[in-house]
Amino acid sequence: MRLLFVCTGNICRSPLAERLAYSWASQSLGATTAAVRIASAGTDALDGKPMDKRSAAALAALGGEPGGFVAQTFVPQMATEADLVLTMTRSQRRKVLAVAPRALRHTFTLPEAADLLRSADLRGVTDLPLRNRARELAARLNAGRARRMSVEADDVFDPIGESGGVHKQVAARIARKLRPLADVLFVDESASHTMVPSPRLYELPDPRQLARPRS
């Protein structure tokens, strides 16, 4: 399973999603996590830059590990080789698809994917081997995309330069949107249960109330 998260600088939103997803995968899959490849990149990243300290603190508060992260620039091969690409904004999705059009059917913004999941036919998806699950989930989400309009709520606000409180709110929104996808993607093949979401992920207000999203 190959997952890719994309934002602009690859120092706030996408690394937070990457490390949080990896933490949840490890909790659910144990040693099988070795079969999961989770990465992130930025459309305008400075290679080697560390994760923003405020986003790193927000990630740690959610149980993720920010240590050792360094930013990398998005290249088209990342999207074409991934099974599921989740960007933080519609603008980033357009940038990804402009250079990797073959990734269209498996590229979504994170909130878009979470919303599509609510009405998707998921029968049999969690029974698939890990290597096939993300690609199949992407196909199920893509099947419902034609019946849904793209909206401003499909963007995740960029907290760069904002207070630690804003970074925490953005982190909570990313976690809230990512959790239901993780519950499908990271079900242990040998188990019959799914992970239970943590209530603390739902307590903070949506940061889109604070300012308009940045691309």
Rank of each mutant, 00 (worst) to 15 (best):
Q92S: 01
A79L: 10
D44G: 10
V70M: 08
A60N: 00
F74P: 06
H106R: 07
A17N: 13
L29H: 07
W24S: 04
A21N: 12
N10T: 02
K95F: 00
E18A: 10
S40H: 03
M88I: 01
R54W: 01
D52S: 02
F69C: 10
T73K: 15
R54F: 10
P101S: 00
P15T: 10
T43K: 01
Q92K: 02
K49P: 01
A25C: 07
T89N: 03
C12H: 09
P76V: 09
T87E: 01
A17V: 13
T80W: 03
R90A: 13
R93L: 11
Q27T: 11
A58C: 14
R102Q: 13
G68L: 02
P50C: 04
T43C: 10
T73I: 07
E65H: 11
P50L: 01
L16A: 08
F74M: 07
D52E: 05
A45E: 07
D52H: 01
P76L: 10
F108V: 09
L59M: 06
A98Y: 00
S91L: 01
A60M: 05
I38W: 05
A58L: 14
A39F: 04
R90N: 00
T80D: 09
T43A: 02
E81T: 08
R93G: 01
N10Q: 07
V99H: 06
V75K: 15
A82K: 13
R13F: 09
R54L: 14
L84Q: 04
E18L: 08
A71Y: 09
N10A: 03
M51D: 10
A58R: 12
L62D: 04
L97E: 01
K49G: 00
T80Q: 05
D52Y: 11
R93H: 00
C7V: 09
V70R: 15
Q27G: 15
S55G: 13
I38Y: 13
A25E: 07
S40W: 05
T87W: 02
A61K: 04
F5N: 03
L20N: 08
L104F: 06
A56I: 07
T109E: 03
P101T: 03
L46A: 04
N10P: 03
A57T: 06
A25W: 12
L3Y: 13
S91M: 05
G30S: 09
T107M: 00
L62R: 04
L3A: 15
V70P: 01
F69A: 07
V96Q: 04
V6M: 07
R94V: 05
A45N: 02
S14K: 06
A79T: 06
L84W: 04
A57R: 11
V75C: 11
L29F: 12
T107W: 05
